[in-house]
Simulated scan of single mutants.
Amino acid sequence: MTVVVRRVGPEAAAEVLAVVREAFGARPPLDPPADALGEDEASIARMLSVRGGLVATLDGVPVGCAILDVGPDGIVLRRFGVTPAAQGQGVATDLVEAAVEAATGRSAVRVVAREELPETVGFWERHGFVVTGRSSPYVELALWLGTTFDTPDADTMRRLGERVGTSLVAGDLVVLTGELGAGKTTFTQGLGEGMQVRGGVTSPTFVIARVHPSLVEGPDLVHVDAYRLGGLDELDDLDLDTSLDSAVTVVEWGAGLAEGLAEARLEVVIERTVGDAPAEGELDPRRVSLRWVIGK
């Protein structure tokens, strides 16, 4: 049997709701009842419109799901469940791994479990989550994530960008900071591969901005070089053929300038891990720090 986990949005509300009802309906009666049992297709679609969710299929049949929500310092998993017939097949573990990928750059993945279900609490603890709080009948758990990555070469930088690209949704803003030659464009190339957009990503220095349309009905990638922009007003004059609300916008040299483009942003800072440039023929490693910021 083959488990496949895919990222979904509001369009998958019906199949997510079906899994939620089957998974949560099979659990022992709780007092108060689980909020999940009161969901309908419209409420699930609203939840999925924030950052989407995950659907796990077993041989093509939806058997597991999780909705991704945003917390102050991480991603919160909501409506995490696996249908009874699919339990014991590794579906839940695959969902956790996909959720960690989706939380790249954030400090934690968080969940809330019921204290009446010790096996559920134990599942999260076996996957590295630790209890951070209790408010009967709820148990709060978190898995702490790294936000700093060493990238010894361009391929590693590109793969990190690809991982980040798979976690982004329409309306996201990425602000890249780093000296000339730090690897900002290489990171963005990987990001474009993760998003599956058209066209090879190159430095936008001479055109200020490029739009790379999605090849998979996802968000477009808007790649901006803010080095020669006098302010955000000039971005409006670029006559981009896509809306920033429906695209992922990546701004090189954007610190102190691009923050007003969105309510939240991923700040990517790329630095050399050594003070001086390497000698000829030696590697030039970088350290990449990722930080999600809400507000200005």
Rank of each mutant, 00 (worst) to 15 (best):
E234K: 11
L232R: 11
P213M: 02
G133W: 09
A66G: 14
V197K: 11
G256E: 10
G161M: 01
I44K: 00
V4E: 00
A277Y: 08
D35E: 15
G161S: 11
W124H: 13
T132Q: 07
G260H: 11
V109F: 12
V109D: 10
E263F: 01
G52F: 00
A13T: 03
M1P: 13
H212I: 13
I44Q: 02
R198S: 15
G171S: 02
L180P: 00
L266P: 05
G190I: 05
E115I: 12
D69M: 14
A102N: 05
V82Q: 06
S214W: 05
R134P: 09
V121C: 11
P137M: 04
M195V: 07
L290H: 06
L17G: 07
V293N: 05
V16Y: 00
G165C: 04
V82N: 04
A99R: 05
V201Q: 14
E125T: 13
L37P: 03
E125N: 13
A13Q: 05
M157F: 08
L68P: 09
V222S: 04
V91D: 08
P62L: 00
A23P: 05
T177N: 03
D31P: 09
M1L: 11
Q87E: 15
A42L: 07
L283K: 09
A108Y: 01
L232M: 13
M47P: 01
